Each structure stands twice: as C-alpha cells, then as structure tokens.
Amino acid sequence: MAGWEVSRHPEWDMMYVAGLTAREIADRCHQNVATIHAHFQSRERYEPGTRATHEAALAARGVDRPTISWRKLLAEVLEFRETHGRLPSHDGDNTERRLHRWVLNQGRAYRNGEMSTPKIILLDGLVGWSIDVRQQERDQIWRAKLTSLIEFTATYERTPRYKNHSSDPERVLGVWLHIQHQKRAEGTMLPWRLEMMDAAFLHWQSRM
C-alpha cells in the first residue's frame, strides 16, 4: 500500500507512542475506537515495532494516568465550553463549580510538573486550561497600578509618596511603589515586571 511512509493520521500516532490507549485516542479525536484499532493494526504491518513502542510507553505511565472518571470529567468540561464558549467559573451552579475546581487542579498539576504526557495531550483541545486565572487577575491589577503610577508622575512631575502624601490615592500609589522597591531589593520581583518598571521609569530603582 503506497504512501504509508507518511502516516494518514500522524496525530493518532503521536498519542499512541506516548502511551495513550485506543479508547483514549478515540475520545480525544471523536472517532470510533474500532477505526483507531484498525489504523494501528495497519501501522504495525507497515512499521513493525510501533506496538512495542506503545506498550512500553503505556507501562511507564505510572499512577497519573487518564482514568475513566478523569476522561468523563474532561468530556463534561469540553461540552461545557462548547455550549457556553468559556471555561467553567467559580460563581456558577454546583455542577459548574465542580468542573471549575477540576480545571484548576489540572492547571496546578501541569504548572508543578506533576502531570503525565497522556493527560497533557488529551487536554490539548481545552483552550486556556493551563492558565492560572488568579495569577492572571493579579497581573492585570499590577499593570493597572503601573498605569496609574505613570499618569500620576506625568501630572505631578514626581513619584507618589506614602508618607507626607497629599491625598489617599497618592498614599495608595506610594505604598504600591514602596512595595515594588522592596521586591526589587529582595530579588523577588517577577522579571517581566522589573522590565516594565525599568522601561517606564529610568533610574526608578534609586528612588526610595
């Protein structure tokens, strides 16, 4: 059969050699499991050793494998996103909150390096699952504070003071700026935030 040097379904092959089962691949790609089995039977004939590679990866998966209950929850989340056009939120009904907690746990495991390759592959179709929403919100607040600081400095031609301030908004900005100085001195400021501060305020690090 000509053309088998280039697979007809390279995505299936990638998942198979990563240790995903035919059922998991069928769920991920919305295919009949018998079709998946038939494909890999043909692949084995034209590329001997494919099954052995799969079985070795399957055996090495360990305890963090996509169980039936895990795949069921993923299917629920995918259905929710397709229906609502977004990921489940913490302020929805009981079912939505349950799915929201599940997504948060997957993202946390991924960012901590505790998630298996099969799960990462299966989650690939869920846009935004690995984003830390709370950190994203904190970053948005930080950017808004920086914008306010830039506007204050442009208006008053000085940085805000948290001592001897002329207004409460100035005090709030002054405290925020003081905290940025402290984080910079301690080496705990995120690199991208330090770059933005440096770009917005030349020599700001010398101002205490």
Rank of each mutant, 00 (worst) to 15 (best):
R158V: 11
K183Q: 12
R111I: 07
D13L: 06
E186D: 13
T117W: 05
R158Y: 02
Q180N: 02
V77D: 03
A34T: 10
R111H: 10
H178Q: 12
T67F: 08
R161G: 10
T67L: 09
R71W: 00
L123T: 03
I131N: 13
H54E: 02
A18D: 06
D132I: 01
R111Y: 09
W70C: 14
A57R: 08
R81M: 07
V77G: 05
R61F: 03
Q135E: 15
P48R: 04
L173E: 04
N94C: 09
V33C: 11
V103R: 09
A38D: 10
I120C: 06
R158I: 11
E47R: 09
G19I: 01
E170D: 05
G107P: 03
D27F: 12
A109T: 08
H84Q: 06
R108M: 12
W204M: 07
V172P: 01
A57T: 09
V17Q: 04
M115F: 01
E11W: 05
T159N: 04
A56I: 05
Q106E: 15
H165Y: 15
G3H: 14
Q106M: 14
K163Y: 15
W142C: 01
H54N: 04
V6G: 00
T147V: 13
S42K: 04
W102L: 02
I131K: 13
D132F: 01
Y162G: 02
L123H: 02
R45Q: 11
V172W: 00
G3C: 10
F40Q: 00
S116D: 05
P160K: 06
L146D: 04
Q135I: 03
Y46K: 10
A34L: 08
I121D: 02
R97F: 12
R86D: 00
H30C: 07
R171S: 06
A185Q: 08
L20D: 04
R184V: 06
A200S: 15
L173A: 03
K163D: 13
N164E: 14
G19F: 01
S167Y: 01
W102M: 09
K163Q: 11
L122M: 12
M1G: 14
K145H: 15
R138A: 14
E170I: 11
G107T: 05
A59L: 12
P66T: 06
E11N: 02
V103C: 08
D93I: 14
L78F: 14
D168G: 07
N32H: 15
R23M: 13
R134F: 03
V133L: 15
R108N: 09
F80Q: 00
G174I: 10
R143N: 13
I120G: 07
T159V: 11
T155L: 04
H178Y: 09
S69N: 12
P169K: 02
H39I: 01
D64Q: 09
R143F: 05
A144D: 12
Q136T: 09
R158W: 06
N105G: 15
Q136S: 14
R101I: 05
H178N: 10
W204Y: 08
V127W: 04
